[in-house]
């Protein structure tokens, strides 16, 4: 079963409304929410996969009502508590166990290097089983096979559908494992093309396509 974040194809959301000349941050606290999340992420206590899972594991009513940076801040608090970096008492406004700047904290002078390094997900891993041109079926249902209700990057709208491999991206960290601190478990990643009419039972124009990056264990061969 899927979670609230997995919304590709959903009906009922209404128009997309760009804000003309939108400022970089709509509220002053958005600046701090972004920077705090990046700085705390640099502690190395969780991966991007774990951070994404924590955001999508918000209660559906929170996920739907929170703005983007509210989701970030809620997930940051949840991650800090889950990793034992802050206590529930501290979050609740109790006394803070003060400490000098820790070694693992990202220092001002190290920011440029850390941001330009990022966190590449390419790894040495198994050789790809599929090649460009191969027909593959995305697993049905879309779910994490390691952890019930866990993180997965197979969108529900693609599950069960047949696509064509168009690109082999090499082996990448497997989010379904890494999000739950179960290891990086790299596996081959592919760009797969799906026909829009096949995905939706309808399309705006015959031949339109949706391209999705999918890990090898999400896919099975189609003769």
């Amino acid at each position: 079963m899927t979670r609230v974040h997995d919304m590709g194809g959903r009906y009922g959301d209404g128009p997309v409304t760009p804000i003309p000349d939108e400022p970089l941050f709509l509220e002053p606290w958005h600046r701090k929410a972004m920077a705090l999340t990046l700085a705390a992420g640099a502690l190395g206590e969780w991966s991007i996969d774990a951070a994404r899972f924590t955001r999508e594991a918000l209660a559906p009513k929170d996920y739907a009502s929170f703005s983007y940076y509210e989701k970030w801040i809620a997930a940051l608090a949840d991650l800090l508590a889950a990793r034992g970096l802050v206590t529930r008492e501290e979050l609740a406004g109790g006394a803070i166990a003060e400490a000098p700047l820790q070694d693992k904290a990202l220092k001002g002078g190290d920011v440029a290097g850390a941001l330009s390094r990022g966190s590449p997900s390419l790894r040495l891993g198994p050789d790809p089983r599929f090649r460009p041109g191969d027909r593959v079926r995305a697993r049905l249902p879309a779910h994490n096979t390691l952890v019930e209700g866990g993180h997965t990057r197979l969108p529900a709208y693609a599950a069960g559908h047949v696509g064509v491999v168009v690109q082999s991206h090499g082996a990448h960290v497997f989010p379904d494992s890494n999000a739950h601190f179960l290891g990086e478990a790299p596996q081959p990643l592919y760009g797969v093309a799906f026909d829009a009419t096949d995905l939706w039972g309808w399309s705006e124009r015959a031949g339109d396509e949706v391209m999705i990056d999918l890990w090898e264990s999400y896919l099975e061969p189609v003769a």
């Binding site: 640099a42 970096l85 001002g108 190290d110």
Partner: peptide, 12 residues
Amino acid sequence: KGLVDPAAIDEI
């Protein structure tokens, strides 16, 4: 708690 350097926030 020394987990975030204010200088890093400014730099980000």
